[in-house]
């Protein structure tokens, strides 16, 4: 989007950074099996690489305890077939993914108490942005980057600040974040990410046709998007997480100095240290003496 057009990198060359949700707890409870999901995604990645010779795909695994790059088409250039069943790129991706899962498992310290914890979405989003920044700085000529999040696990409200920061940094460098939510609930983070960065958010209804969704909605390059109609969200879940308890709230207190969000009234902002005055409602019900205390 921001780069100068050239013969080599025309405006329809894309760099797609795909964030794969590999939260084992989610996949063990999902209706779509992980192998099915992978076959849809691998076919989709292949399709993107064949759409344009210069297209580039990077896959980052969003794990439970860690994140890592599992595939980069610019370094894996062998596109021949291996025993006629699968492209080399796919098998190398699967190989890396397997290794990633093993290290991710080793990192987990304790058994979760019967609850699915969210994946490290903020981490993988940051890694994607870092990669894109490196591409931006590689020179004037580079493909147009975009991020595609394939997420199924729930939002982690405790990652709210980190994720929002990543979203705003993506917005600043005009990198759209597309998101496809394959879980059973809804993800406010993904909705906001796509809304803020001008990407597309979609929640497929029929997961058996995931490949079709991916191809129809997320395969088109950024330049062509201006010509086609993509599904628009009916509404965006703008709820935020409070900074104090990491609850998802729809109404709360905002620090007037640094805009930190709190679910209840505090005496002092934990972010910037500003001292708050009396809340209005309290002051109204309080006695006259209290009402006279100056606002700070």
């Amino acid at each position: 989007m921001a780069s100068a057009p050239s013969k080599l990198y025309a405006d329809d060359v894309s760099l797609v950074v795909v964030l794969l949700d590999t939260n084992p707890f989610f996949w063990s409870s999902s209706s779509l099996s992980f192998s099915q999901f992978l076959s849809h995604v691998l076919a989709f990645l292949n399709a993107i690489l064949t759409l344009n010779q210069l297209n580039q795909v990077v896959v980052i695994a969003t794990g439970y305890n860690s994140c890592d790059y599992v595939f980069d088409s610019s370094s894996d250039l062998n596109r021949s077939f291996e025993n006629g069943r699968m492209p080399v790129m796919c098998s190398s991706l699967l190989q890396k993914l397997e290794e990633f899962l093993i290290t991710d498992e080793q990192l987990s310290k304790e058994e979760p108490e019967g609850k699915i914890k969210p994946s490290l979405f903020s981490g993988s989003l940051s890694m994607a942005l870092c990669y894109i920044q490196r591409v931006f700085r590689s020179g004037a000529l580079h493909p147009h980057p975009r991020i595609l999040c394939l997420q199924g696990s729930l939002d982690g409200p405790e990652q709210y600040v980190a994720i929002m920061n990543a979203i705003f940094s993506a917005q600043r460098s005009s990198v759209p974040i597309d998101s496809c939510y394959i879980g059973s609930q809804n993800s406010a983070f993904l909705q906001q990410a796509s809304y803020i960065t001008g990407g597309v958010h979609h929640k497929p209804q029929n997961l058996d046709g995931l490949f079709q969704y991916l191809m129809t909605i997320f395969a088109t390059d950024l330049h062509s998007r201006s010509f086609i109609h993509l599904p628009k969200p009916v509404g965006v879940d703008f709820r935020a997480s409070c900074f104090c308890h990491k609850n998802t709230i729809d109404m709360g207190y905002i620090c007037s100095v640094c805009l930190s969000i709190f679910c209840k009234h505090h005496k002092k902002c934990s972010t910037c240290g500003s001292v708050f005055g009396q809340a209005q409602s309290e002051a109204a019900s309080a006695s006259d003496k209290k009402r006279k205390t100056p606002e700070t």
Binding site: T22, P24, W27, S28, S33, F34, S35, L38, L94, L97, E98, L101, I102, D104, E105
Partner: peptide, 8 residues
């Protein structure tokens, strides 16, 4: 994790 690896 085992089931995930299995599917891969």
């Amino acid at each position: 994790y085992g089931s995930l690896r299995e599917s891969i």
